[in-house]
């Protein structure tokens, strides 16, 4: 399968009152799993829709393998954007049956793998005769996952696929995703705000904040920029001196800081402190949650 990169170049999307995307440029290289994270309303869905030409952009362009995606049958045939169903429960597809939805996939996605779809349906226990609107949130998520995986599209974008899933189903999903990724080398973009498993799955993280892409970084590199420092308060203070401290906790003479500094720089201070890496979730909170960076 020949693989091409999907690029957004300075994409802006202005809704009536809101600037949903503010000059986003990103290149999705083939063969990677990207995590698209951001708070609610940060523009995740808008970005995914713009990347697949489902909404017109205000300015900027999206290209696949160097060719514009807009109204480009060849490019669109290689892309799959599996939307979150639950978010639009009152719209048309709620009245469709599961099998009708999947039939659309079979009809519209040229790389569709019916055998795979059937196997996934069986595994998830989806009732194909049920109307989509009557499925539980978890089942709706599973339907979007079946659609995305079975599309076999070289570039597949999933919008909040794990939102309605419990931890067991999430692990199942990520296992399926990795198996498929290893077997086919497809590119995946997964938007989510549930980050527990993310660090292990996403090779790169894209972080959207208020319509701006603030990070497009390999997950490891992003995590390596932060560390948690704990130990005697004086030692922690000395070790973190001069670095932006994002979060501090003190309990008696023991202190624990989250600091934006590579672990090596802290170690170099020679203080007797314990260093730990941060989870992706904590890094995300540090980047998108705390506006008062550097303050006490």
């Amino acid at each position: 399968m020949e693989q091409k990169a999907l690029c957004a170049n300075n994409v802006r999307k202005q809704y009536k009152e809101k600037l949903a995307l503010d000059g986003v440029s990103v290149t999705l290289e083939p063969g990677h799993i990207y995590g698209l994270i951001g708070r609610n309303g940060a523009g995740k869905t808008t970005l995914l829709a713009a990347l697949t030409a489902q909404i017109p952009v205000t300015s900027g362009e999206v290209a696949y393998g160097g060719e514009p995606v807009w109204e480009n049958e060849k490019a669109l045939a290689d892309l799959c954007f599996s939307r979150e169903i639950g978010a639009r429960a009152d719209s048309g597809e709620a009245a469709l049956k599961v099998k009708d939805y999947l039939r659309m996939g079979r009809l519209f996605y040229p790389h569709w793998d019916e055998e795979y779809a059937q196997a996934l349906i069986k595994q998830f226990g989806l009732d194909v005769k049920q109307k989509i609107g009557r499925l539980s949130k978890g089942m709706q998520s599973m339907l979007t996952i079946v659609l995305a995986l079975a599309s076999r599209a070289p570039v597949t974008l999933l919008d909040e696929p794990v939102a309605g899933l419990d931890v067991v189903a999430r692990e199942d999903f990520y296992r399926l995703l990795l198996d498929d990724h290893m077997a086919t080398g497809r590119t995946f973009v997964i938007s989510t705000h549930i980050l527990e498993e993310g660090a292990a799955i996403f090779e790169r993280v894209l972080i959207l904040k208020e319509g701006k892409l603030i990070e497009d970084t390999p997950t490891d590199d992003l995590l390596a920029r932060f560390c948690a420092v704990s130990g005697p308060a004086a030692a922690v203070e000395a070790a973190c001196e001069g670095f932006p401290v994002l979060h501090r906790e003190a309990l008696g003479s023991h202190a624990s800081f989250v600091v934006r500094a590579p672990a090596a720089d802290i170690t170099a201070r020679g203080q007797a402190v314990e260093l730990n890496a941060l989870s992706l979730q904590k890094v995300f909170v540090a980047l998108c949650g705390h506006e008062q960076e550097g303050q006490a």
């Binding site: 697949t52 030409a53 489902q54 109204e71 480009n72 049958e73 669109l76 045939a77 892309l79 799959c80 954007f81 939307r83 719209s91 048309g92 597809e93 469709l96 659309m104 996939g105 009809l107 519209f108 996605y109």
Partner: peptide, 13 residues
């Protein structure tokens, strides 16, 4: 309805 769905499934306008 299906025009909207088809758009979501990657049909061109």
């Amino acid at each position: 309805l299906h025009a909207k769905l088809a758009l979501g499934f990657g049909a061109t306008r």
